[in-house]
Design a protein around this nucleic acid. Structure first.
Lengths: 211, 211
DNA sequence: CTGAAACATGAATCAAGATTCAACTTGAAA
DNA sequence: TTTCAAGTTGAATCTTGATTCATGTTTCAG
């Protein structure tokens, strides 16, 4: 996570599910722990990172961890929620600028690829949640897909897309995005992302377009 | 894993990377350990299952485990290779029966959805490999996608698909398949798989078809 | 039959690391 | 100033579970 990214992320009870510390000092410590945990979990994975790795990086004593989190899983879950919101915050504005249904899908895929290739750590954390915090993982994808579904249905209603497109297509598109991000954003940058985006979007556009 | 599935899976050094035991008794024990491990890892995940869980279910003493595997990760890796071959063995014949490029893709998706919804455990094991045995995970998807790419390029050469389809489209399709399998095969069976298949395939077919 | 080689056994070892806790510090309200 | 809730500290505790190993037992080629 970049310093810039850290600035943007105030503690928010509604999002993280955590009680907000009463003092400024407490909020700073909590934020330091979350940021450190993102780096450590992202780099080493859930099981390989110790609480001490997190507190060391955060510049905080071991015991302080338990002032804010009940367990290692607890902070991981909070992180997933936090990061899920970041992905959404990165993609949504780009989508909203797009003028029609097809370009909205292109903007969404482009924004996602972009984000993932810059924040590979975040990708790994959300993905590992499938096993560490399955509820948070499902929550992330269910809400992501719900947004896609809504876009597709709106596009269909407006006559820009095939009639009947909906949830199934949304899951398909989400899976596509995730795998393309994994392959071309995380595993290797051997292809120009713009080219990947163009090719993938042609597939989707021809698949969704009203015929 | 069903009993039927067990029968089909002899120990094969080339696939599993393990030395084949010299005696019949040894081969039986190794197979029992692999089958037990698939059940335990699939049900509880890598970190939550202990070696004792595996040996108990296999009906074998704790120490015997280390006659066959160097570590817990070792058996997990072998399992991924083993299961990857099973997925391929389930899907390939169906694909080969199909007469043209588009129906081959439909057969592949159908076969995969079918397999995953019956063998949810296998799905989880392969997916968890992303974190436990990243090399085996990448190997599985890279070879899966290589097969898809070859199918698409053959279809394009035959004039059945758009010109230029290839690797990017193959990763997109693979991601789609995986997410649809996860959502409709593993998380919930609230939709008829045949309907999911029909809708998803329409998306892919319109996306790939020569225009 | 016989002796290796292969395989089986499970109690003991050992390290790692999550969690607890009792004493201490800070800061702001009264 | 005083007080107290909020926050900080890190050594000590405690559990868990992977791995080792010394001692049997089985298999099978010769």
């Amino acid at each position: 996570m970049t310093d810039a990214a850290k600035q943007q992320v105030p503690i928010d009870e509604a999002v993280s599910g955590l009680p907000v510390p009463k003092t400024e000092r407490g909020r700073r410590t909590l934020r330091a722990l979350l940021d450190a945990a993102a780096l450590e979990f992202g780099a080493s994975g859930f099981h390989a990172t110790g609480i001490t790795d997190i507190t060391r990086r955060a510049g905080v004593a071991l015991g302080s961890f338990y002032t804010y989190f009940a367990s290692k899983e607890d902070i991981f879950r909070a992180l997933v929620t936090d990061l899920s919101a970041q992905v959404k915050a990165h993609v949504t504005p780009r989508v909203e600028e797009a003028p029609d249904a097809l370009s909205r899908e292109k903007a969404a895929l482009g924004g996602y690829l972009d984000f993932v290739s810059q924040q590979q750590l975040i990708y790994r954390i959300i993905d590992e949640a499938e096993f560490v915090a399955p509820d948070a993982y499902q929550g992330h994808y269910r809400s992501t897909v719900a947004r896609v579904t809504a876009r597709l249905e709106a596009g269909a209603a407006r006559g820009e897309l095939k009639e009947g497109v909906g949830e199934v297509e949304a899951w398909a598109i989400a899976g596509m995005n995730v795998f393309l991000g994994l392959r071309y954003g995380v595993w290797g940058k051997d292809r120009d992302l713009a080219e990947v985006l163009a090719r993938a979007h042609e597939l989707v556009a021809d698949g969704l377009r009203r015929r």
